[in-house]
Computed example of a mutant assay.
Amino acid sequence: MIIENDLKLDFKDVLIRPKRSTLESRNDVDIERTFRFVHSGLEWTGFPLIAANMDVVGTMAVARALSRFGALTALHKHYPAESLIPFFRDEDTANVFYSLGTTEADYDKFQAVKAKAPVGKLCLDVANGYTERFVRVIGRLRQENPDMVIMAGNVVTGDMTEALVLAGADIIKVGIGPGSVCTTRKMTGVGYPQLSAIIECADAAHGLKGQVCGDGGCTVPGDISKAYGAGSDFVMLGGMLAGHDECEGDIRYEERGGQKVPVAMTFYGMSSDTAMHKYAGGVASYRASEGKTVEVPYRGPIDGTMQEIMGGVRSMMTYIGATKLKEVSKRTTFVRVGAQLNTVFGG
């Protein structure tokens, strides 16, 4: 048994210290980034935000909507091949990841889609990115798809980040347990504070010219700013993008003034009892549910939320004098705090 005494931090533990700046307006900053990926050699430019590959959020409608903002979507892996083929063949999918797990069924479906439609980006997603099998699958996919961008995870430590980059991943997905509908930490006791995970994994990946995607833990736009400040190249969101018209959760209606109006939408983790009953017929005898099912407020079109997120990032950049998003991590100084918000009039 080993105890690490080094301080590890989450988003709630810090604020970003402002700095003197010559910027005069939020309109003066550039929130796009350009990456050339280390293995595929492909180049991408846009706002580095990714909708999570959860079946409520990682939808084709969300992908179309976020593309208008230059942001990305990782489609959930439960779309059938007959839906994926026309989507990747007929739509502009420059900002879309095809998602898959490590089963042979996932691999076979991917091969069927790839044979009939151009797929440029892969999201290889498992809850535990520390297995040797996962490393082998990355190597296999890289060998067979040298020109594809591969994002893989999830991990939370620098050593495994390096291993996955060396195996063939361009982007490493960082986060175990921080998601709003993830109960892995509660059920297993395993996890890592998300801000420190991003800092350590980004340092490891950047040394090999790879990128990282902070996955989970963001609850407000300021958390996204902190993730970029910590070195995250991309930020993946689930709960913050749930509840919108473009999502696929069940909607609950209430009668108001003689009319039924939408008030809430279901949102659940992909290791929840809900998801496993939906896709696997129930929770397997050898495992437990590691996710929960909740209702989030119905929020209408996703455009309003994206405007809030992008506006918050722009404002953060003016506070620290960062003209370009790529400068943010170099201009960020975190201040440890005991409390972040004045909640006298509510949370």
Rank of each mutant, 00 (worst) to 15 (best):
residue 18 P to H: 02
residue 18 P to F: 06
residue 19 K to D: 01
residue 19 K to W: 02
residue 20 R to A: 08
residue 20 R to D: 05
residue 21 S to E: 07
residue 21 S to R: 03
residue 22 T to Q: 05
residue 23 L to K: 11
residue 24 E to M: 12
residue 24 E to R: 13
residue 24 E to A: 09
residue 25 S to R: 06
residue 25 S to W: 06
residue 25 S to F: 02
residue 25 S to D: 03
residue 26 R to C: 12
residue 26 R to A: 09
residue 27 N to M: 09
residue 28 D to K: 02
residue 29 V to T: 03
residue 29 V to A: 05
residue 29 V to G: 11
residue 29 V to Y: 11
residue 29 V to L: 01
residue 30 D to T: 02
residue 30 D to C: 09
residue 31 I to K: 04
residue 31 I to C: 09
residue 32 E to C: 10
residue 32 E to T: 11
residue 33 R to L: 08
residue 33 R to W: 03
residue 33 R to H: 00
residue 33 R to F: 00
residue 33 R to S: 14
residue 34 T to P: 04
residue 34 T to Y: 00
residue 34 T to V: 02
residue 34 T to F: 01
residue 34 T to C: 01
residue 35 F to W: 07
residue 35 F to D: 08
residue 36 R to A: 04
residue 36 R to Q: 15
residue 36 R to H: 10
residue 37 F to Q: 13
residue 38 V to I: 08
residue 39 H to Q: 15
residue 39 H to E: 15
residue 39 H to T: 09
residue 39 H to K: 12
residue 40 S to A: 13
residue 41 G to D: 08
residue 41 G to L: 03
residue 41 G to R: 04
residue 42 L to W: 02
residue 42 L to A: 15
residue 42 L to G: 11
residue 43 E to Q: 08
residue 44 W to N: 13
residue 44 W to F: 13
residue 44 W to K: 13
residue 45 T to S: 12
residue 45 T to W: 09
residue 45 T to H: 06
residue 46 G to P: 03
residue 46 G to I: 03
residue 47 F to K: 15
residue 47 F to S: 10
residue 47 F to A: 07
residue 47 F to M: 14
residue 48 P to K: 13
residue 48 P to E: 05
residue 48 P to D: 02
residue 48 P to I: 09
residue 49 L to V: 14
residue 49 L to Y: 04
residue 49 L to M: 15
residue 49 L to G: 04
residue 50 I to L: 13
residue 51 A to E: 01
residue 52 A to D: 05
residue 52 A to L: 01
residue 54 M to H: 06
residue 54 M to F: 02
residue 55 D to R: 04
residue 55 D to Q: 07
residue 56 V to M: 12
residue 56 V to P: 00
residue 57 V to T: 11
residue 57 V to A: 03
residue 57 V to D: 00
residue 58 G to I: 14
residue 58 G to S: 13
residue 58 G to C: 10
residue 58 G to E: 09
residue 59 T to K: 03
residue 59 T to D: 05
residue 60 M to Q: 14
